[in-house]
Design a protein around this nucleic acid. Sequence first.
RNA 1: GCGCCCGUAGCUCAGUUGGAUAGAGCGUCUGCCUUCUAAGCAGAGGGUCGGGAGUUCGAAUCUCCCCGGGCGCGCCA
Length: 669
Amino acid sequence: MYLEIVNRIRTAIASHIRLAYGVEVKVLTERPPRLEMGEVASPVCFELAKRLKKAPRVIAQEIVGSIGMIDGVARLEVAGGGYLNAFLDRGLFFVAALLAAGREERAIGADSAKTIVEHTAINPNKAAHIGHLRNAVLGDSFSRILRYAGERVEVQNYIDNTGVQVADVVLGFLHLEKKSIEEVRRLSEAEKFDYYCWDLYARVTVFLEEDKKRLDLRADVLKKMEEGHGIEAEMAELISVAIVRCHLRTMDRLGIDYDLLPRESEILHLKFWDAAFAMLKEREAIRLATSGKNAGCWVMPLTEAASGGEAAADASEDRDGEQDVKIIVRSTGTVTYVGKDIAFHLWKFGLLERDFYYRPFYKHPSGREAWITSGTSGDAHSSGNTPEFGHASSVYNVIDVRQAYPQQVVAAGLRAGGFDSQADHLKHLAYDRVVLTPRCAAELGYEIPAEDAKKQYVEISGRKGQGVKADDLIDKLMEATRREVDSRHPESSAVEREENARRIAVGALRYFLLKFTRGTIIAFDFEDALSFEGETGPYCLYAIVRARSIWRKEFERSGEAESAGAEISAETANRFLSSPDGDSIWDLILTAGSLGSQIETAIAVQEPAFLAKYAFQLAQAFNLFYHKHRILSEEDAAKKAFLLLVTSLVERQLVAALQLLGIEAPKEM
RNA sequence: GCGCCCGUAGCUCAGUUGGAUAGAGCGUCUGCCUUCUAAGCAGAGGGUCGGGAGUUCGAAUCUCCCCGGGCGCGCCA
C-alpha cells in the first residue's frame, strides 16, 4: 500500500514540476525520521534549487501552494530547509491496506519469462553443514520472494557428481576400507550415510597428505569416473545419488524444494562442451594460442569487465605484450572448469543446441517433484509431460563470494559469444562464509593449529571434517524448542507439540541465517543460534500467535465463526487514528502496509535480510500495540472492532513476510 | 604485485538510488504477570561511524590517501 501511494506522490510532484517550471526531475522520496513530519518526504526542491537558482524553501512553498490534491494524501507541507512532507489520509490507507492484505501476491503469468535460481549445490560426498544451509536458505528465500513478485522461477541444485570430492570418497571405500560395491550399496541405504562419508572423507584427506604419491590414485579414480565406466564410476554414481537424497531430506526439514538437479556427469556424457566449443569457435569468442606460455591452449580474451585481478582496459597488454586471457581448453585437449560452466550457462539460457534427458527423482513433502538429469533417452521419463527446463531469461547463482572471479569469467564467456543481454542477466548472488567462533570450535573438540589460534574465528572445512553438520544443528534446535513447548503446553497432543516445536526451530534457524546481510561473515555459535529472544524467528512468530489468540478468544466469546462485521469506514478509522494514542497505532498500520515496498527493495538489491529486518520491526511494533491496548475488554464496540482489524492486518502481513523467508507460525507457543 | 570486501555502542549487527537528532538485538542496571500467552513490555546507561583530506546546501553513505583485518587472482574444481 505504501509503495502505491509513494508512486502516486512521486508522479504527482514530477508532473507538477514539469508543468510549473518546465523541468524534468527524478523525484526521490524517503521516510521522514519522525511521524510528526509525515509519512513521505521528498528533498526534490534542493535539486530544483540548483537548476532554478532559487531558494529551496521558496520553491517548496510554491509547490505546496499550487499542486492541489493528491489521492490519499491529506496534506502537503514545507519542512526544514525545503523538504516537501506528505501526510497521508490515515483512514483511507488503513482501509486500502486491509483490502489488499494477503492478496498482494502477484499471479505468475504462464508466458512470463523464466528465472533460474541455482542454489545449494553441495558436493555429493558428505553431510551438509551450516555453511551449506546459509546458501540454501538464502537461495530458497530469494526464490520465494521472486515468485511472490510474479516471476516464474525454476530452482536448480547443481550436482557435481564427477569431481574430486566424490572421487576421494570412492577412493576411501576402495583403498582404505576395501569395500565391495555391494557393501557400499548396503551402507548407502542406511539412514546416516552422509555422516559415514563425512568421516571417511576426512580420513582420505589425511591419507593423501601422508604420501603425495597417493594422489595418483585419485587421478585414476577421477579419470574412470569421468569416462563413466569401471567400478569407480559405478561406486561414484551410487554414492553421489545416495548423498543427494540425504541432502534433500535435510533440506526438506527446512522446507526447501528444488525443481531440477542438473548433474555434471550428463554435461560430460551428453557432450555439452563439444556443442559450446563449436559455437564459441565459430563466434570467435575463443582462439587457439600458437605461441607463448599458453601455446596449444584455447583461450578467451578477458576484458576489463572480467578482471579478477586483471589489469584495467588500458593495461590489458601486460609487460609481456600478451593480452590477459583465460584458458578454456588445455593443451592436452581437456576442457577446464570454467569452460564446462560456460557450456552449462549457455544451456541455462537456452542458447545451446543440446539438452538433457530428464526423469522424476524425488517428491518433496510439499508435493513438488524434483527432477534429475539423465544421460540416455531410455532411462528418461517418456510419459510426455516432462516440464521444460532451462530457457531462462535471468539466472541467479547463489554461490559463496570467493567464486566471484570464475563467475565473472562465465559472464565474460557469454559476452564473448555475443550474448550480452544474457550476460547482463546472469547475477551472482554472493554471500560470505559461515565460520565457527573459537568457543564453538572448542566445544566441538577441534584442535586448532597454532598458526590459526590467533585468528578470531575458525574456518569450516569439509575436507578436514570440521564443521557443524546441518542435521545435528536442526536436531539440537528441535530438542530445545520441544523442551519449551512441552513445558508450556503439556495439555496439547504429542503430534501438535512436535509440529509446533518443528516450526519454531525452523523459524529460529532460518531467521538466524537470514538476519545477516549477504556480505557479513557469520560467526556461528550455538548460544546465538539457539536463542529465542530478541531479534529472532521465534520473536516474530510469537507476535503472530498472540494476534491469532486474540481473534480466537473473540470468536469463542461471540460465538461467531467469522469476523462478520469486519469492515470499517475510512472516517471511523480516522476518528481513532487522530485520537491521542492514534499515532502509535498509525505507525503500526503504516509498517504493516509497507510489505510491498520492502519486497521491491529486497529484490532490487537481492537481499532477503531486508525482509527479515522488516518482519522483526513489524512484530516489534505489534508487541508495543499489544501491551498498550486491552482489545477484548475494550468497552467501546466501534473501537474494539477497529483494534481487531488492526490486529488482523498485522497478522496477515507478518504471515506473508515470514512465508517469504520460509518461516511458518505454530498453533501455540 | 593486482583486484574485491570489511572496519558503526562492551559484544553481534542494521543503516544499499547522499538527506532532517546514527538505530536494533544481546549483555548490564531498575521496574512490570489476580489482565488478549512474560519466547513479552517499559525505563536507564552506552558513539572521535578506523584516521585524515576533498566533493556537496547536506557524508556512516561518494572520491583520494593512510592504518587495521579478510578473501580472490592455476593448463585445480
